Structures are given as structure tokens and as C-alpha cells.
Amino acid sequence: MLIWRTQVRWAECDVAGIIYHAHLFDWFSESRIQWLMAHDLDYYKILRPRGIELLVRHAEAQFFHAMHPGDLVAVDVELTGLSPTRARFTYRVLRDDITQQETSRGMTEHIFVQQGHASRVDRHNPDLFARFQAAYSQSQ
């Protein structure tokens, strides 16, 4: 698990001053990029230079409590599913204060794509798949 921290910005909110739901997926993306970096799978320095993308196959989110500009937020991201062709990440969004109140949670499922085609990472990049497996094993 990795914790990525941010603060709700006014630009992320709707006219009512509540975070606009689509920005939660931006937080998922940013936290996932940090997770990859922390596990020696840097998206911009390792995966993309090899032509590997993690394309979103499915994404979902649940909302429990509103967030407002200035709120401090911690996003817990974890790799919770792995196969040679897919990876699944789950996210918990918490207030980064004394309450640690869970405001939302979500999941993204990704397909490994290389050079524009679905790819088995274990066959075409076994060293990278081994890194994913090691990270996945740590979270179990």
C-alpha cells in the first residue's frame, strides 16, 4: 500500500463548493503513478519507454462524505489483483486529519498494452511482471 496526499483545490469543486466527482479519478491516477514509482515501475521512465501502457478497462467509485476546498486528503492505493494481462488497483480516500474519515473509495482495472496491442507482460517483459508480482505478494 502507498499513501498519496493532496489538498482539495477550488478548481476541483463544483459551484456548490464540493469536489466534482470526476476529479476523484484524477487522484486515483496520480496515486497509482506514485505507487508505480515506489515499486520500481515508473510509468514515465520504465513502462512508457518500453511502449507499455496500463489502459483503463473499468473504473468505479463510491462517495460517502463531501470534500471541500482546503480539505487535506490521503489516498491509500494498493495493487489488489494481478494477472499476466491485467492489474487491479483499489483506493481509499480519507480525510488527512485526526478523524481519518473515509470519504470515498474506488477501483480501477487495467489491461497491459504494448505497442498498441493487448499484451501478456509475463511473456514480453518478464522482468517487469516479476516486479508487479513482488509488489502484489507484499500486499497479500
Rank of each mutant, 00 (worst) to 15 (best):
R95W: 01
F89K: 12
I52E: 03
I111C: 07
N125K: 14
R120F: 02
F25T: 14
D97R: 05
A135N: 15
D14T: 13
G70N: 07
R120N: 14
H65C: 08
L128I: 14
Q138R: 14
E12N: 10
Q34N: 03
E60Y: 07
D71E: 06
P84C: 07
T103N: 12
V56A: 14
V15P: 05
H65Y: 13
Y136A: 08
F28C: 01
Q62M: 10
F64I: 06
Q140A: 09
M107P: 01
Y43G: 09
A87E: 01
H65G: 01
V56M: 11
S104L: 13
H21T: 08
F28M: 04
V75D: 00
D71S: 08
I19Q: 09
E60M: 07
A134W: 11
L24Y: 15
V121I: 14
C13V: 06
H23M: 03
R57N: 02
I52Q: 12
E30Y: 05
N125Q: 15
V8S: 05
Y20D: 03
L94Q: 13
E30R: 11
I33R: 01
R88E: 06
D26E: 14
S119Y: 02
A135P: 11
Q101H: 01
Q100R: 10
V73C: 05
F132D: 01
A66F: 11
S137Q: 15
R86W: 01
T103R: 10
P126C: 12
S29H: 08
R120C: 08
I18V: 13
I98D: 14
E53M: 11
Y91P: 02
M107Y: 09
W10P: 09
L55S: 06
V93G: 02
H117S: 11
T99E: 02
V93C: 12
A118K: 08
T90A: 07
M37A: 13
Q133I: 02
V15S: 12
L82A: 01
R86F: 02
A61W: 00
E102R: 11
S31R: 02
V8Y: 06
W35K: 12
G70E: 03
V75G: 03
E12I: 04
E102S: 03
A118Y: 00
I33A: 00
S119R: 12
V73R: 04
V15Q: 15
A11N: 01
L94R: 15
Q138D: 06
R86M: 04
D40I: 07
Y136L: 06
H110P: 10
W27Q: 04
V77W: 05
G51Y: 05
P69S: 13
R92I: 09
Q138T: 08
V113D: 02
F129N: 05
R95S: 03
Q7S: 10
M1I: 13
Y91E: 03
D97K: 05
E60K: 11
Q114H: 11
G81M: 06
F64E: 11
S83Q: 05
W10F: 13
I18F: 04
T90C: 08
W4Q: 07
L2T: 15
Q7M: 11
R92A: 13
I46M: 12
G106M: 02
V113E: 00
A66Y: 10
S29P: 03
L24I: 14
E53K: 08
D76H: 14
P84W: 04
F28E: 00
P49E: 03
S119E: 11
A16Y: 07
G17L: 11
V15D: 10
H110Y: 09
L82C: 06
K45E: 15
